[in-house]
Simulated assay, not measured.
Amino acid sequence: MKIVVLNGSPKGDTSVTMQYVAYIRKKFPDHRYEILNVAADIRKIEKDAAAWNTTLDSVRSADLVLWAFPLYYLVVCSQYKRFIELVFERKAQDAFAGTYASSLSTSIHFFDQTAHAYIHAISDDLGMKYLGFYSAEMRDLLQDEERKRLEKFVSLILTAVQEKVPVQRENAPLVWPATTYVPGPSQKILDTGAKKVVILTDSDSSSPNLFAMTDRLFKTFSGSVEMINLHDINMKGGCLGCCQCGYDNTCVYTDGYIDFFRNKLLPADIIIMAGSV
């Protein structure tokens, strides 16, 4: 059986999550494993057509796809989310459709279920046959009972794939609404007074409704109100999980985010986050 591991850690092979995968490979050596560092290599996958096509070819050849990731603020990291977005943006769902899937996470057991529910729904949207998840505390691998639990989980998953057990979709497909938002007549203008209002959005050409709604909202206020588009902020990338900020609260990135955070968000009395789901 070929198992393709979609590594959702920006740390690549050195991540804690991949140590669990290494343990699985040691205990179940009769299978072929291919690890794709899709989070760490997201820039290359996004820009290099050959890298993108190679990734899809690997997924197509898999008997089982293992979504393996650490938790970043209740869900997967932004680099992993970007990879998932690319699959849908480039209409590459066929590479995943019909393949068995499972997920493995490492964390401090804080809202693990949120991340796995997300991956389960993504798997359903891709037409995959999702078999379940394993949620590990980062240090579980050091405990004999937890290692046994992991082995039992993997054994059950592999047996399900080998026996081709039927899997029913649990998440209904999402249908994007075809409605067009048309702003209503002007209402009473709200004076912010001494309060500073910031409208934070990621609006772009793909979401005309969001643009129209945020524009209408912006015009509802008078006074100190500012609308900021995340696309206009100089951010080099998502969190790398390096934990360097733990020493002195300073990020390893040298970009425009810190100035934006300190000068725009911190002084705000009201922050309105506007985005498309």
Score class of each variant (00 low, 15 high):
63 D>T: 01
145 E>S: 07
30 D>S: 08
248 D>E: 13
101 A>F: 01
132 G>Q: 07
266 L>E: 14
223 G>M: 15
189 I>Y: 02
68 A>R: 05
53 N>S: 14
256 G>E: 03
224 S>C: 05
217 L>Q: 04
111 F>E: 02
29 P>Y: 04
63 D>A: 08
4 V>N: 04
39 A>R: 00
167 V>A: 07
188 K>C: 04
42 I>D: 08
131 L>N: 09
247 Y>C: 07
216 R>S: 11
147 R>H: 04
204 D>V: 07
159 T>M: 15
30 D>M: 01
132 G>V: 07
256 G>F: 00
248 D>M: 10
42 I>P: 09
228 I>L: 14
136 A>Y: 00
225 V>F: 08
33 Y>K: 08
90 R>K: 15
275 G>L: 14
144 D>H: 10
276 S>P: 14
221 F>V: 15
267 P>H: 04
274 A>L: 11
136 A>M: 12
110 F>E: 05
29 P>D: 10
67 W>D: 03
143 Q>C: 02
265 L>W: 01
122 I>N: 02
26 K>F: 05
15 S>K: 09
241 G>N: 01
268 A>K: 12
125 D>V: 00
33 Y>S: 07
29 P>G: 00
172 A>C: 03
96 F>Y: 12
274 A>W: 04
118 Y>C: 03
116 H>V: 10
251 C>D: 02
261 F>W: 10
139 R>A: 13
58 S>K: 15
199 I>P: 08
108 I>V: 14
81 K>D: 07
22 A>N: 15
161 V>K: 07
15 S>I: 05
31 H>W: 01
20 Y>D: 03
170 E>A: 13
202 D>E: 12
223 G>N: 13
138 M>V: 13
130 Y>D: 13
115 A>E: 05
55 T>V: 11
188 K>A: 15
238 G>T: 00
123 S>L: 00
165 V>T: 08
274 A>M: 08
270 I>V: 15
170 E>I: 09
81 K>M: 14
18 M>A: 01
4 V>Q: 08
217 L>C: 08
67 W>E: 01
55 T>K: 11
44 K>D: 11
118 Y>A: 00
124 D>L: 04
193 G>P: 02
140 D>M: 02
149 R>K: 14
205 S>H: 12
8 G>I: 02
121 A>N: 08
145 E>W: 07
113 Q>I: 03
192 T>K: 02
242 C>D: 04
37 N>V: 00
157 I>G: 03
62 A>G: 07
7 N>E: 07
38 V>P: 00
268 A>E: 12
122 I>T: 12
86 L>V: 05
9 S>P: 06
49 A>D: 12
240 L>W: 00
150 L>S: 05
3 I>T: 13
86 L>C: 06
8 G>R: 06
187 Q>L: 14
89 E>W: 12
34 E>K: 14
249 N>D: 11
140 D>A: 05
212 A>S: 13
204 D>Y: 13
58 S>V: 08
216 R>N: 13
93 Q>H: 10
85 E>Q: 15
216 R>E: 12
16 V>E: 09
268 A>S: 10
148 K>V: 09
97 A>C: 14
211 F>P: 00
190 L>I: 15
59 V>P: 02
216 R>D: 13
168 Q>E: 13
198 V>Y: 06
127 G>E: 12
7 N>S: 15
73 Y>N: 12
